[in-house]
Write a protein that binds this DNA or RNA. Structure first.
Lengths: 265, 265
DNA sequence: CCCTTCCGTTTACGACGTAAACGGAAGGGC
DNA sequence: GCCCTTCCGTTTACGTCGTAAACGGAAGGG
């Protein structure tokens, strides 16, 4: 009766579960600090959701009044920007496992795969923060979520350029890659959120009501079990490989034409 | 100095501009009504953004106190759900043009292309509403944004089933298609929003500051012009065609294997 | 010892979502 | 005509929000 299928491991999820340690010690000795505030905000959102995060509650989770936060953070909006930055930044500082060390890599495909898994690990570790990463207006118009830092985009473009991509192809790859990551990961975390919120309100006769509703939708009724299965990891892998194949095709036929339109989308 | 390139027409955008008629007549004769309220909310969000929408302001845009709205809408959250439903519903009732009549179509590819353009037209018509469509928790866990209604999902699955897709393939196609639409369209409207918000705050020396920042990012600096170009329409078309090709491949080799994993992602 | 600097608290204000009581207009039965 | 019910927008009120401004006490150097 559960929706998740445990037939295969999911390395990104494993990394998540491994990383959840030492969450909260109540009423700290009040060594307030911008980084401590941002981390507390991340923990709070993970635990209670974005809507529940208020300055007063965040303050009291740190054993402090709301106004104390304003010494270190200009306001709530900037706090959220800081949360996004800090979460995205965890891409870099966790080469401890076997994944996601962006610094050195074996070829551009390896780089893109590591980067994708790194972002997916972040999304799964902070499903309630990810919509923020996805929808907050970027610093520059061409910094596209979820690759939300100049450093990251620079690294992306540099890697592809070194590998022989033309500037046009590298930029097109950047857009296609962003679009793929954003779509897949946002759907995945939305699904997690939906499951959680459904558990919150059992509604009693949900079972009966569901079957009644589906009577008029024969295709839905027939495929309901399939629709409920979670194959996110496999789908992620396959979509990613498909994208890499497209990029490879573009790269190998790059010498012939330097037309400016439609290299890839 | 502008960011948009006007070298090609964009039918979805044209449809948008054609459809923007007769927005607001101030201080209506107060024939209040749920549909009128929802439409006023949509207009308000389009004009002033989601964050600016409050019950009091929405009421006064209808010439009425905030509490009057509560006769027709249970609360703000339900209002937003209603906005999403109403916007998505415009998919069906606009067969007047040459696009997007989901009812009858010439083959499943034609259906998917029309549906994609229909959703894109909606996203471009209401860029400030689309993030709501993308991120609001769905009614059922397997209703994935942006295809946010049982009717729509039923139509999708039915069309592919009739065309010979197995249930597994149809469901996998549904997920891949949702992911593609969500990623591409959300990026496109986010970019629109970013451009608008940048115009709001010229910041004086933005030009100088930008060039200073980019000094440490040679790849960004070199490709800056390319990054600023808007090729959304062409990229949308190419990604969509690539997805259709993948689906076609799956469909044509469906008879050989009925394995359950990884038909497509 | 005092004076400055730092930093968390207290107080206060306007705006928000919304519950509850209110009032007046419309309309049908007598 | 009159009254009573039903409808529907308004008024009032409460608790919470983000945050500006004033406050107070601890730390530390002259």
């Amino acid at each position: 009766m559960t929706t998740t299928s445990d037939d295969g491991r999911d390395p990104d999820l494993v990394a998540v579960q491994k990383g959840s340690a030492a969450a909260s010690e109540l009423t700290r000795p009040s060594g307030l600090d911008r980084e401590r505030i941002l981390q507390a905000a991340i923990d709070f959102i993970d635990e209670s959701g974005l809507a529940a995060l208020t300055m007063r509650r965040l303050g009291s989770s740190l054993g402090v009044e709301a106004m104390a936060l304003y010494r270190y953070v200009p306001g709530r909006e900037d706090l959220l920007d800081g949360v996004v930055d800090r979460v995205v930044e965890t891409l870099w500082d966790d080469e401890d496992g076997d994944d996601v060390y962006i610094g050195d890599h074996a070829g551009w495909q390896d780089y893109l795969v590591r980067l994708a898994h790194g972002m997916r690990r972040i999304a799964l570790a902070h499903p309630a923060v990810f919509p923020l990463i996805a929808s907050r207006p970027p610093a520059a118009p061409w910094v596209r979520p979820p690759l939300r830092s100049l450093r990251l985009v620079e690294s992306f473009l540099g890697t592809l350029s070194e590998a022989g991509f033309s500037d046009q192809a590298a930029v097109a790859a950047y857009r296609a890659y962003s679009s793929f990551l954003l779509g897949h990961l946002l759907l995945e975390v939305t699904q997690i959120g939906a499951q959680v919120s459904l558990l919150d309100q059992p509604e009693g006769d949900a079972q009966a009501q569901r079957e009644t509703d589906l009577a008029e939708y024969p295709n839905l009724a027939r495929t309901e079990q399939l629709l409920g299965q979670d194959k996110s990891a496999a789908e992620f892998e396959e979509s990613l490989e498909n994208l890499l194949d497209r990029l490879e095709r573009v790269l190998h036929q790059a010498k012939n034409n330097d037309g400016e339109v439609g290299d890839l989308a």
